[in-house]
């Protein structure tokens, strides 16, 4: 039912509705997937800042490839890993645009590492939302650069062996070492208080862009229940117990 068709009975007030920046298309995420939470938070922030009419989103390759369907925004789909280069092109062509990329860990921290590092180092004035769920979702649960030691995936069936495949890549810590970025933070989506903090971080990141302050990245630690082969509840518990010790939360860089 569209909002126009909803009648609010007398004595009641509307306290919750779909952000204007979201379309009414259902998402294609799996049940319990935290992409949906991140997708909505971004829409809320865009609404709050009143920038819907000048925002361009960049959809990655991966589970969020259909992102353009979920938003009421101009959108471009980038080739795998190249979102930060595409964002650079958009923003350099039209600095009035508010540009954000939405990228998973394979996209941003494996195939797109170079694009990410150099866009951050140039201090490009756009916003990156980085979903770290420690796995490749869309292709069927393969090892990501963020996969934890010992974690079983379809390409690490005996668990990730660091001697052969390396260690979880903490790309936010890497970027925080650079002089270029304005704001690098890591938050989590596993429960309501952390979702509220994630929203606040996204608001900061988009506000930075609006004020021309440069590159901001919000890493959101999330679970992929389908490929973890866990219930959503168990996946979130696993996140707290296993993933968060490897990916400590908080601001990694705030350049004043």
């Amino acid at each position: 039912m569209s909002p126009a068709e909803t009648t609010i009975p007398q004595g009641y007030g509307k306290v919750f509705s779909r952000p204007q920046s979201l379309s009414d298309a259902p998402t294609t995420y799996c049940p319990g997937c935290l992409h949906g939470v991140a997708t909505r938070l971004i829409a809320e922030v865009i609404d709050e800042l009143g920038i819907k009419d000048r925002t361009v989103g960049i959809a990655p390759v991966g589970c969020a490839v259909f992102l353009y369907r979920f938003y009421n925004l101009d959108f471009v789909q980038a080739s795998h890993g190249r979102a930060c280069a595409v964002a650079t092109g958009l923003k350099r062509a039209n600095s009035d645009l508010m540009v954000f990329s939405y990228q998973g860990d394979g996209d941003l921290a494996a195939i797109g590492t170079a694009e990410t590092v150099h866009a951050a180092n140039r201090g490009e004035n756009f916003t990156v939302v980085f979903i770290n769920n420690q796995i490749y979702g869309m292709t069927g649960g393969e090892m990501a650069p963020t996969t934890l030691p010992g974690q079983r995936t379809t390409t690490t069936p005996r668990g990730r062996d660091v001697a052969s495949t390396g260690y979880p890549l903490r790309i936010s810590e890497m970027l925080a070492q650079l002089d270029g970025p304005r704001y690098i933070t890591r938050q989590s989506l596993h429960d309501a208080p952390h979702i509220a903090k994630s929203r606040k971080a996204l608001l900061t990141a988009f506000s930075n862009q609006l004020e021309g302050k440069g590159f901001s990245m919000v890493e959101l630690v999330a679970a992929c229940p389908t490929n973890f082969k866990m219930s959503p509840d168990k996946a979130n518990k696993w996140l707290v117990e296993q993933a968060l010790p490897a990916y400590p939360l908080g601001d990694l860089k705030v350049k004043e």
Binding site: V76, R82, A85, V86, A87, G89, L90, A93
Partner: peptide, 9 residues
């Protein structure tokens, strides 16, 4: 890919 972005803009 920057060309791709600027062209899209």
């Amino acid at each position: 890919n920057m060309v791709y972005g600027a062209a899209a803009a």
